[in-house]
């Protein structure tokens, strides 16, 4: 009996080692043909969030940056693609319900493609993070609505990780033209689309008006946060009026309000916080 157990144990360890080894080494590292195949796989499976050229879309980080928040080695990347990143929009392979799950081979091809697209040198932060922090919590009024590291307002999205998870272009666009692409809010596990930060004006039966953002909504109820950060749980058929717009509650920061340099400083601050 003992012998049988030992054999089983040895077998188990051996198999475990094999599996571990298989997950550790990219069999296609540096293979241009695999990178090309990986590019097609990337377009099908990853481009929705990370952009067609892996430069990042509005949702996912720029993967051409050599330094990545969640992954360093190819093995890390394999794990992230296979299992997703809990607490972020990055899903596990094959779980988004629409596309086809990728084989291990296809995942390695994608990693090979991403490596082939990486810029060799890390991008130097272009602004002054310390000054950006002052602006964020001070004159630029960002923290009235946005929280970073537990400090700030609640009306807009929490921004601690945004510097790592969004491209520079997407961040600039969301400050200069916040209504272009509304930020994602609550994601429900079985629902196809996340709630977006839509602006709302509701008037109750007794004439009380409230303006704010939707935390969540269905055909019969809406949960909103007003501009004083109060939460209102409303039944739509009991309201006098209910209006929603895709005009962001965030004001447009034109260059006349916030100079390019000051914006660079704020981005440098967000990137430095996000990198932690």
């Amino acid at each position: 009996m003992l012998t049988r157990c030992l054999v089983a144990l040895v077998g188990f360890v051996f198999l475990g080692t094999l599996a571990h080894a298989a997950d550790d080494r990219n069999p296609f590292a540096g293979d241009a043909k695999a990178a090309k195949a990986g590019e097609y796989e990337f377009r099908i499976n990853c481009a929705l969030c990370h952009g067609l050229g892996a430069h990042g879309g509005g949702r996912g980080p720029d993967l051409t940056r050599a330094q990545k928040k969640h992954t360093h080695s190819d093995a890390d990347m394999f794990q992230v693609i296979s299992n997703g990143i809990p607490g972020t929009a990055m899903p596990a392979n094959g779980t988004n319900g629409q596309g086809v799950g990728m084989t291990d081979e296809e995942i390695w091809q994608i990693i090979t493609y991403i490596r082939s697209q990486e810029m060799k040198a890390a991008v130097n932060p272009q602004g002054n993070a310390a000054h950006g922090k002052e602006l964020f919590y001070g004159d630029a009024n960002c923290s009235l609505c946005h929280m970073v590291d537990g400090k700030g307002g609640r009306l807009g999205p929490e921004l601690t990780a945004v510097g790592a998870s969004r491209t520079r272009a997407a961040l600039i666009d969301s400050v200069r033209n916040p209504s272009n692409r509304l930020a994602w809010g609550l994601t429900e596990s079985t629902k196809e689309f996340p709630q977006e930060y839509e602006s709302v004006t509701a008037v109750t039966a007794d004439g009380k008006e409230m303006k704010g953002v939707t935390l969540n909504e269905d055909s019969f109820t809406v949960q909103i946060m007003d501009t004083t950060e109060r939460i209102h749980l409303l039944e739509k058929d009991k309201l006098r009026s209910f209006q929603k717009t895709r005009q962001s509650a965030m004001p447009r920061y034109a260059a006349s309000t916030l100079s390019d340099k000051d914006l660079d400083d704020i981005l440098a601050f967000l990137v430095s916080v996000g990198a932690k």
Binding site: E39, Y40, E41, R43, I44, L52, G99, V100, T103, E106
Partner: peptide, 16 residues
């Protein structure tokens, strides 16, 4: 488009 060769058992969309 994302042209890809057919490979048995592999996703075959040809497009993103």
């Amino acid at each position: 488009t994302a042209p890809q060769p057919y490979e048995a058992g592999h996703a075959f969309y040809g497009s993103a």
